[in-house]
């Protein structure tokens, strides 16, 4: 793990991020960094500000104060597409699928391939062909790509969400509790895929509530409390119990 040299330029760095919702301070000057090629765990209680941080890092929200640096350069994400175009993508807890849309439509949601010209027509067959390849790469057998996602099992749904990210060739993947809604067997599939993505050079920030999964997946962790980083460290040497103790200790 010599890629964890602390003084290397971090891939993604947040500095002094402040975000308020009315009178509620969600993030209170939080600073953190993601290094190239690592899987970073964000731990902490509900309402600590972890999800808000991820939303800022993907351009879904703009911070009230503070800066985000990508490869050392200050970036200000205008919106989700902007962050995505810079190689940052996210999978939400609910996998962000529209149950009524087909597998193909979900994989290409808001990145549809269309004809050029004044009237842009969806290239449905081309998207279907590409979706077939992506689903094969993720390695899950799906009944029909025209089937609504609502008819799929938890693992199949996760596969669709992952195929969607694979399609964007993301450099940074953010995962907001990706294992909250899937069964044990399917959690194993998701963990394998995350490891494989990292092997391909994708850096990952993940929010997990199962500390066993944190030990399995992550190299480094931050404990978030009250919108600030309360503790950071390397996973090496930690057990689930010691992580839980660390999260609980920060409450005091």
């Amino acid at each position: 793990m010599n890629d964890l040299v602390p003084d290397a330029t971090p891939l993604l760095r947040a500095e002094g991020i402040v975000k308020q919702f009315g009178s509620v301070v969600a993030l209170n000057g939080l600073s953190m960094e993601l290094r190239a090629g690592e899987v970073l765990g964000l731990l902490g209680d509900n309402g600590a500000g972890k999800s808000t941080l991820l939303k800022i890092l993907t351009g879904y929200m703009q911070p009230d104060e503070g800066t985000v640096r990508l490869d050392g350069e200050v970036v200000r994400f205008r919106d989700v597409q902007h962050a995505r175009s810079l190689g940052i993508d996210i999978i939400y807890q609910d996998l962000a699928l529209v149950d009524q849309l087909s597998i193909v439509q979900n994989i290409f949601l808001n990145r549809e391939s269309t004809t050029s010209g004044p009237i842009k027509v969806l290239r449905r067959r081309a998207m279907r062909r590409e979706a077939e390849i992506l689903i094969k790469r993720v390695g899950v057998n799906l009944p029909s790509l025209d089937q609504p996602v609502g008819t799929l099992s938890g693992g199949q749904r996760a596969a669709v969400a992952i195929a969607r990210v694979v399609q964007t060739n993301a450099r940074v993947l953010l995962l907001d509790e990706p294992l909250a809604a899937v069964g044990v067997r399917e959690a194993g599939i998701v963990i394998d895929v995350v490891r494989n993505l990292r092997a391909e050079g994708v850096s990952v920030i993940v929010i997990l509530h199962n500390y066993g999964h944190v030990i399995d997946l992550c190299e480094r962790f931050y404990i978030v409390r009250g919108g600030e980083i309360a503790e950071e460290g390397r996973i090496e040497g930690h057990t689930s119990e010691s992580l839980i103790a660390a999260v609980l200790a920060t409450r005091l």
């Binding site: 993720v138 099992s153 194993g188 599939i189 490891r195 494989n196």
Partner: peptide
């Protein structure tokens, strides 16, 4: 192929229950 382990695992139960499209 970094996804070899995923590719190696058989399809999930749900996939096998649904008949050919």
């Amino acid at each position: 192929d970094p996804r070899a382990s995923v590719l190696a695992s058989p399809p999930t139960l749900g996939a096998r229950l649904i008949k050919s499209p």
